[in-house]
Design a protein around this nucleic acid. Structure first.
Lengths: 231, 231
DNA sequence: CGCGAGCTTGACGTTGTTCAACTAGAGTGG
DNA sequence: CCACTCTAGTTGAACAACGTCAAGCTCGCG
């Protein structure tokens, strides 16, 4: 494992908005020494639900979807991961297995950090441990929202939620190109691909959204927010 | 706040199956000194979604339901809490608000522990912090299951899941009396009260379940498990 | 005895899935 | 340069699942 392979350095990530910013320079150097990078082509699995959780993964470039796989081969996309976001795993310190899968939706580079490194950091740095707890709690809150939305709202409300998530938290713009397929949008909104297409067309007919192939343009965000709120 | 008010003592809880067992005697004594107990009658709220998170709650006797409240006044019951179980909250170290409500379903006594006490323990005792993370991760895994079940399974599968949860994790018996109403069972299974009744009747007609008013008797657990699995 | 809350049942309408057919665009080989 | 194929996207019709509404029931309690 040559250092040359590393196209980035943890010390640069320090100022990004993730829990690594609570590590000392020394600790970050330690992480930097222990990690290694892997490149994934679009569509490739980064790790697989049910597989062993040996490393924590951090996206350095590209984008990945994190999703649950059901017995009937249908998926639920939990969220999208952008650079410097951490894909921990509920398997950490429980059963040491992955409870969801992650796959690159564009060409992606990810850092792999052994769980033992993580355990050491959590042991040595109390602040880091507390921030880890805060991070987990934020993820928890997100899941509550998803649960409420996906079980208590109608299709249009769920799709509105997905579009708002993409525009506000992922692409940070009302206009965006996405690598997500219609099936992916459906998996994010708990519906079939056909229903997703129908709802998108509805939004289009109402002048709320312009979309063509992978291009999306939210024309009336307030209307979308209202649809999301009402359900 | 007289000590006399306390009908239990933390040192006795030490051997119960929660994360307090990773505290030293001294730390437990500290918790014991700082906590106070509150009694709730059946039906009363213990805390309320959206309210300030000032204390962590631990059930000492009775039982409580933890639930999300939606805008349209419908609820999702996340789980039931038995004695010595901790009701933390995702608001801890995030926005310091409750993200769900808790209500007693029978007469219940609960310990209230200030969040500052918790923060001190997490700061001082690394093992405790790591176990806290493990605890949060287990809760996370439970939520994934709920999300999969409630969005990808049909009514019978969801109700089967609820009955299995009650018999295996709550009452630990195939026969149980419950304080839960039909509406509560519905809120646990993401369906209407009427649908819950119809599914229960279906199970009854198929000889899988005997139920009358608050009395439940699972006659064929394997069949129930199969229904849950298939969806 | 009568009242009220929770429970039960049936009829009906809506929502969303399934299935099958069709289209458009992107590679692939002749 | 044109078939050919393959995949993603799209559409419509039939159907199943589930919620809504309204009515009637049961049982505990004043």
């Amino acid at each position: 494992m040559e250092n040359v392979e590393k196209v980035t350095n943890c010390l640069q990530c320090k100022f990004q908005s993730n829990i690594f910013r609570f590590l000392s320079e020394e600790e970050l150097s330690y992480v930097n020494d222990m990690r290694f990078e892997v490149s994934f082509k679009s569509g490739e699995n980064i790790f697989k639900q049910g597989g062993p959780l040996t490393h924590i993964v951090c996206i350095t470039s590209g984008m990945a979807k994190v999703f649950l796989e059901a017995d009937d081969h249908s998926d639920i996309i939990l969220r999208l991961m952008k650079p410097t976001e951490l894909i921990g795993g509920p398997g950490f310190r429980t059963d040491n297995r992955h409870h969801f899968s992650a796959a690159a939706i564009v060409d992606t580079v990810a850092c792999f950090i052994e769980v033992s490194v993580f355990e050491k950091l959590l042991n040595d740095n109390t602040r880091f441990a507390l921030e880890m707890i805060a991070y987990l709690n934020r993820a928890h809150i997100g899941l509550y929202n998803k649960l409420l939305t996906n079980t208590h709202k109608h299709m249009s409300g769920r799709m509105a939620g997905t579009l708002l998530y993409l525009s506000e938290e992922v692409y940070e713009s009302n206009v965006f190109e996405t690598a997500l397929s219609r099936q992916d949008l459906a998996d994010m909104s708990s519906m079939t691909k056909e229903s997703a297409i129908r709802v998108l067309k509805e939004f289009k007919d109402e002048g709320i959204l312009n979309c063509y192939s992978s291009h999306f343009d939210i024309a009336n965000k307030e209307a979308l927010r209202k649809i999301y709120k009402i359900g």
